[in-house]
Nucleic acid binder design. Structure first.
Length: 898
RNA sequence: GCCGCGGUGGUGGAAUGGUAUACACGUUGGACUUAAAAUCCAAUGGUCGCAAGGCCGUGUGGGUUCGACUCCCACCCGCGGCACCA
């Protein structure tokens, strides 16, 4: 008997599938297109680790299942090779990224072949090759034309180790996403994409997406919509305490202010219902108002001492890191220890500006403070502080003895009034005004709010906003946390941004016909740290001719973020055979949007958000007619080792190559898929592989040695039940239960002396997505069994029976992967005999086996139940209150002790 | 702090409100073998019992129900997203 030795045939089939293009659908003629996408990998030098392999296998299993269902599945692959990760590695081993990429590319594609994924090998996309990044640059130009790419001087995230700027999305709790260095700030002129133009659409479309919930939540959080109002506070400069108390209106005239816009401070608030409780204003140290005070303090009548205090404070807070600025809030949270910052930094601080503003509703003058707990980057960089109803403002007010004025009364529902639904309003007296005052941040009823007293928070928000609008002191406003996508990188390993700077013409985009702007080979590719990319040192590269005037000009020296490359790769897979276009209308229509996308949850607010933005932009440019790129998205789980994340520093990285060599790709795949639900990941344990090997080995032996006979009724029942379950489980990505279902079927068959050929075939087909090599090998063996004697084995094994394996009309081709998914016959799913569980007071006491046609015959069943000695034992001496009978399932007797 | 997901044997995990622990790993015992490996068979939640069998058991405490891992309420723990976001 031939033994199951995976190494003997896996490679043979992998090569053959690739050679004949078994998994390359005809993109123009396919009848039932299904685009199954998986996140292409960053090719690291170590090759794919188990985590990658897990993700790709899970996606491949799904793709193979859809193929069996009769879809023309397009399952492409490529490498996301540009970017900091690969470049950092190249620096570490002191090699050039272009050289490194050649090696990693080879290794990755070998691994892909080895693991047996059904890729379309004819449509590879590697982002670091000119024939791809030409289109990255093209897309940049389209965005520029549309006004969605712009250049701006701004304070941006700067990673000191990677020596480049980063997008907000790449800063994870103050640290660089790639190297975990503390990210700082730097003022630089940079390229941005206007993703904020799509904030509302990006947010509102989420509800209708069939995506993993975890991703949808992360995106909603990241976009961070707040609805409220912007409110103008009239600035009153340097009024002395005496005049203030005499309440004489002495408002600084606009002329006195060295500002162009107005003599108002604008704030954003989500709580316009609390304006009456706004007892001071706070501006961020970066707010323009601070400079006005610093520069014009004399004209404004602000004492020199006050001015100097402000300057000192602003200088001090500039030195604080972003993390320190943001971390005082952590004081109250669990993260306290994590920041490792002294308490002094974690307490709010600020200084009085010597100026006041008029509360538009109370008419009172309230002091304006500058404090670094207010951030310039959100809203207007100024807030109205309502200490009675905001925790942060309260902390500040207590420290500096500022007025605390409650304006919202908690609604208390008393137990006895709950039924009549009456609301009792807490009296103002119940709110302490001393140090023990407790913040109340919830909604309630307005008090101390003049004509608005008695309104609920919700209604007050509307009325007060309306009132402010009427008096031109404010308006309804929506704020988003999302900020524009910073795409410049002061690095080498990326697509050059296709822009030319001409002294005469200014900023000139590279004409499309001149694309790609090739990345030159420069020896010293290391980042400079000066805020200018390494390309600036290559005079051949930067010096060019202005496309408009023909005069001398210089090229942009930054490259773009590699997340830009990956936000369009799934479009390119469809047009790799066209050199002249990125979109092909008929293919777009046939294949897009992507039917199923599988990938990691870590890209929730990076790749997955950027891709949605780019797709929306392409739609508005008229290239496509849909705005969401991925119909379905599922986040796969993570593979851990001994309860911990795999990492180089821990030395617990699993290299799959070794396991595949030892056990075969099928065993490795099946093990990964059997660990648990695909969306859950799992803990990698070496001894688990053995169990899966045993299973495949038993299948192997069964198929090669089974004694054929027509299926028994029981066999058909088991089989058809398994087919039904496997179909549902595959669709839901519950591969672990597909496998356990097949194990159960196998266990059943092992107890029989004969098996039908139909059963064998169905098992192999059902198993083929998980174990594609072994099932293919066995399929060819079965085919030989069926053939007339004269046809030789080699003929079958090496030549396709059909000229084109992709031909839709010839689903009966030589490969198991071209077979139709087995159909289950409902007649086998109905049991002849049914087990009724009999319980007394909810506890199982007996089983009752009845014939199917008896199911609805309650009387007879009741008689049988009552006749059971086991039941008798438990009802003896008790009164039967009632009987519950759920037909075909359970019979429960409810008793009461006498 | 807000939002989301989860908590089931020694382990990974199964269970449309209806026999909790399928399937597998591990462990123990047995068969085969000179022996080992491989393979096959059996047992395997806890506890009491010679046994038949009983009782307890899905993070904790309540509730709904004839019946709850599953639904509701409160809490504890773990994981993830956001976070001085006004």
């Amino acid at each position: 008997m031939k033994k199951y030795i995976p190494g003997e045939f896996e490679n043979k089939w992998a090569k053959k599938w690739k050679e004949v293009g078994l998994f390359s659908p005809d993109l123009d003629k396919a009848k039932k297109p299904f685009y199954s996408l998986m996140m292409f990998p960053y090719p690291s030098a170590e090759g794919m680790h188990v985590g990658n392999m897990y993700a790709f296998t899970g996606s491949d299993v799904y793709s193979r299942f859809k193929r069996l269902q009769g879809f023309d599945v397009f399952e492409p692959i490529g490498l996301d090779g540009f970017g900091i990760h690969g470049e950092n590695y190249a620096m570490k081993i002191n090699e050039h990224p272009m050289e490194v990429s050649k090696r990693t590319e080879k290794h990755f594609y070998e691994q892909f072949l080895m693991v047996g994924n059904a890729f379309d090998w004819q449509r590879i996309v590697d982002t670091y090759k000119p024939n791809y990044y030409k289109w990255t640059q093209w897309a940049f130009l389209q965005l520029y034309k549309k006004g969605l790419a712009y250049r701006k001087k701004a304070e941006v995230n700067w990673c000191p180790l990677c020596m480049t700027v980063l997008a907000d999305e790449q800063v994870v709790s103050g640290e660089c996403e790639r190297c975990a260095s503390m990210v700082g700030k730097k003022e630089l002129e940079q390229w941005f994409f206007k993703i904020t133009d799509y904030a509302e659409k990006l947010l509102s479309n989420i509800d209708s997406l069939d995506w993993s919930e975890i991703i949808k939540v992360a995106q909603r959080n990241w976009i961070g919509k707040s609805e409220g109002a912007s409110i103008k506070f009239e600035i009153v400069i340097a009024r002395s305490e005496e005049t203030r108390q005499s309440n004489k209106k002495e408002i600084a005239s606009p002329a006195k202010l060295d500002r162009n816009d107005s003599d108002y401070l604008e704030v954003f608030t989500t709580r316009p219902d609390t304006v009456f409780g706004a007892t001071f204003l706070v501006v961020s140290p970066e707010h323009p108002f601070v400079n006005v005070i610093l520069n014009s303090f004399q004209d404004l009548g602000i004492p020199k001492q006050v001015r100097d205090d402000i300057e000192e404070y602003v200088e001090k807070s500039k030195k604080k890191s972003e993390l320190e600025r943001k971390s005082s809030y952590a004081k109250a949270s669990k993260d306290k220890g994590k920041t490792g910052l002294p308490d002094e930094v974690l307490t709010k601080s600020g200084v009085f500006t010597g100026s006041y503003a008029k509360n538009p509703l109370t008419g009172e003058d309230i002091p304006i403070w500058v404090a670094d707990y207010v951030l310039m980057g959100y809203g207007t960089g100024a807030i109205m502080a309502v200490p009675a109803h905001d925790d942060r403002d309260l902390e500040f007010a207590k420290k500096y003895n500022l007025e605390i004025k409650p304006v919202i009364a908690r609604i208390r529902q008393m137990p006895e009034t709950r039924q009549s639904n009456k609301e009792e309003i807490a009296s103002p007296a119940e709110l302490d005004r001393n140090d023990n005052v407790e913040v109340y941040e919830g909604d309630g009823v307005l008090i101390n709010s003049g004509e608005f007293n008695g309104l609920s928070s919700d209604r007050a928000k509307e009325s007060i906003t309306k009132y402010l609008e009427e008096h031109q002191l404010g308006k309804k406003q929506v704020q988003y946390h999302l900020r524009d996508w910073l795409i410049s990188r002061q690095r080498y390993w990326g697509p050059p941004i296709p822009i030319i700077y001409c002294d005469k013409c200014g900023l000139v985009p590279v004409p499309e016909k001149d694309l790609p702007v090739e990345l030159p080979y420069i020896k010293d590719f290391k980042p400079t740290g000066t805020g200018v990319g390494p390309l600036a040192s290559d005079s051949d590269f930067i010096n060019t001719i202005c496309p408009q005037c023909g005069g001398k000009a210089k090229r942009e020296t930054d490259v773009s973020d590699n997340f830009f490359d990956s936000s369009l790769y799934f479009f390119r897979y469809l047009t790799t055979d066209f050199a002249d276009r990125f979109f092909d209308d008929s293919r777009t229509k046939k294949w897009l949007p992507v039917d199923m996308y599988i990938g990691g949850a870590e890209h929730a607010v990076l790749h997955l958000l950027y891709s949605r933005f780019i797709t929306m932009a392409f739609k508005d440019m008229g290239f496509i007619d849909f705005e969401e790129p991925f119909k379905q998205f599922r986040a796969h789980g993570l593979i851990i080792k001994d309860g911990a994340k795999m990492s180089k520093s821990k030395g617990n990285i699993i290299v799959p190559d070794k396991y595949i060599k030892e056990w075969g790709a099928d065993v490795f795949r099946a093990y990964l898929m059997f660990m648990g639900p695909f969306t859950g990941g799992g803990d990698f344990q070496d001894d688990g592989l053995n169990g899966v090997y045993r299973f495949l080995n038993r299948i192997w032996n069964l198929v090669l040695n089974f004694k054929e006979a027509e299926a028994s009724l029981e066999e058909n029942r088991m089989l058809h039940k398994t087919i039904q379950k496997a179909g549902l489980d595959y669709e839901n990505l519950h591969y672990n239960t597909v496998i356990s279902g097949l194990m159960e079927l196998l266990n059943f068959l092992s107890k029989q002396t004969t098996v039908s050929k139909e059963t064998i075939k169905a098992i192999l087909i059902m198993l083929s997505p998980v174990a594609p090599f072994m099932t293919e090998e066995l399929w060819s063996v079965i085919a030989i069994r069926q053939l007339p004697e004269k046809q030789s084995r080699s003929e079958i094994a090496t030549s396709p029976a059909s000229p084109d394996p992709r031909d839709d009309n010839n689903r009966q081709s030589w490969s198991i992967h071209q077979q139709p998914w087995p159909k289950y016959d409902p007649k086998y799913l109905e049991e002849e005999e049914i087990i009724i569980v009999v319980s007394v007071d909810g506890k199982v006491r007996d089983n009752l086996v009845i014939q199917k046609d008896m199911v609805d015959n309650r009387k007879d069943i009741e008689n049988l139940v009552m006749a059971s000695s086991k039941v008798q034992k438990f009802v003896a001496g008790k009164e039967i209150v009632k009987n519950i009978y759920i037909p075909g399932k359970i019979f429960n007797i409810v008793t009461e002790s006498k």
